[in-house]
């Protein structure tokens, strides 16, 4: 048993951490384990989790995407623009997701064909996407989007009493989990991150894999953005700022190596839950948001240090 634990610490460590934090919060606050709080928490988590799922793919290829927050804002604003023009909501959402895919592909192409380091490339597009958003919206929120049931459902709806964003997140989690674990593409993602040269020499088109990974992240970011937009019934030009940090934190807490090639999307889900639980719990306990940031940073450090230990 002890051997099993030490060997699998890297895998179950984050889960144990999550459980410990939840038990502590449950003891400290009577409201924590209420159904409404848990659903509220999960709905908040779903936005970060969706972005972090994409980020997991990116980081597995030894990349990073700093542009997700800006990309979220731009995609949301453009989708909102389509909605105000009177387009069918479902079609608008679909086009919005395609825009996300395309913006992500731009990142991927700059990185692979332009041979720019992912950190620099997405740092630049982070600024550019935000700038384009501000130009497009003229710095003002886009409001009065749609009163269609379908569109409101995305951010505010419930299915069998469960918030729709949570269901959406779980469905996408299952799909991505399957892709990483059981498909050729998933295997290629790990291989390219583990050793790009060896992968290329084995006949894998590493550039193509990377472009897809950034495209996926772009699409998931816009999906997260559409959830927010639907919930607020408006698109904010400043939406998503600093979201890249929570997404990266979730991936890292979940045990995925920034060096690429090693990690699991289950870890990312748990990482996103840990961050969400901390935010939520500290709110319940009326801890000031200033202190919240200190706690969150501490948890990230602790998680990474424990992860190092177990190796």
């Amino acid at each position: 048993m002890k051997q099993f634990l030490t060997r699998n610490m890297a895998k179950i460590g984050p889960l144990i951490g999550l459980i410990v934090i939840m038990v502590i919060l449950g003891v400290l606050s009577d409201n924590f384990f209420t159904l409404s709080n848990i659903f509220n928490l999960l709905r908040q988590v779903s936005v970060n989790a969706l972005i972090a799922f994409g980020m997991t793919f990116v980081i597995l290829t030894a990349g990073i995407d700093l542009s997700v927050g800006s990309l979220l804002a731009l995609g949301s604003a453009l989708t909102a623009g389509l909605l105000t023009s009177g387009m069918d909501p479902l079609l608008a959402v679909f086009i919005g997701l395609l825009i996300g895919l395309a913006l992500g592909a731009i990142n991927g192409i700059i990185i692979t064909k332009g041979k720019v380091a992912p950190f620099i490339a997405t740092l630049a597009t982070m600024t550019i996407f935000r700038g384009v958003t501000l130009v497009y919206t003229d710095g003002k929120p886009i409001t009065g989007l749609s009163d269609s049931f379908t569109f409101e459902m995305i951010g505010k709806g419930y299915v069998f009493g469960i918030p729709f964003p949570v269901i959406l997140m779980l469905i996408i989690f299952v799909i991505l989990f399957f892709i990483l674990r059981n498909t050729v593409f998933g295997r290629q993602v790990y291989a390219v991150g583990g050793n790009e040269e060896a992968s290329t020499l084995s006949g894998i088109k590493a550039d193509r894999v990377k472009i897809w990974v950034y495209s996926l992240t772009g699409m998931l970011s816009v999906l997260a953005g559409i959830i927010i937009t639907s919930r607020l019934n408006s698109a904010q030009p400043t939406a998503g700022s600093m979201y890249e940090l929570d997404a990266i934190a979730a991936v890292v807490i979940g045990g995925t190596s920034l060096a690429g090639g090693r990690g699991r999307i289950v870890g990312t889900l748990i990482g996103a839950l840990i961050i969400g639980v901390i935010d939520n719990g500290l709110n319940l306990l009326n801890v000031s948001s200033f202190y919240q940031q200190i706690v969150k940073g501490g948890v990230i450090l602790l998680a990474v240090m424990l992860d190092r230990r177990s190796k």
């Binding site: 059981n182 498909t183 050729v184 593409f185 295997r187 290629q188 790990y190 291989a191 583990g194 050793n195 060896a198 992968s199 084995s202 006949g203 894998i204 090639g261 090693r262």
Partner: peptide
């Protein structure tokens, strides 16, 4: 080689097409 990966994953790397059906391993 992908050093961090297993023997299985390394051998499969050149043979992903052979060991998969419609993209699923």
């Amino acid at each position: 080689l992908v050093l961090e990966a297993s023997i299985r994953e390394n051998i499969a790397l050149t043979n992903l097409k052979t060991v998969s059906n419609n993209g699923v391993i």
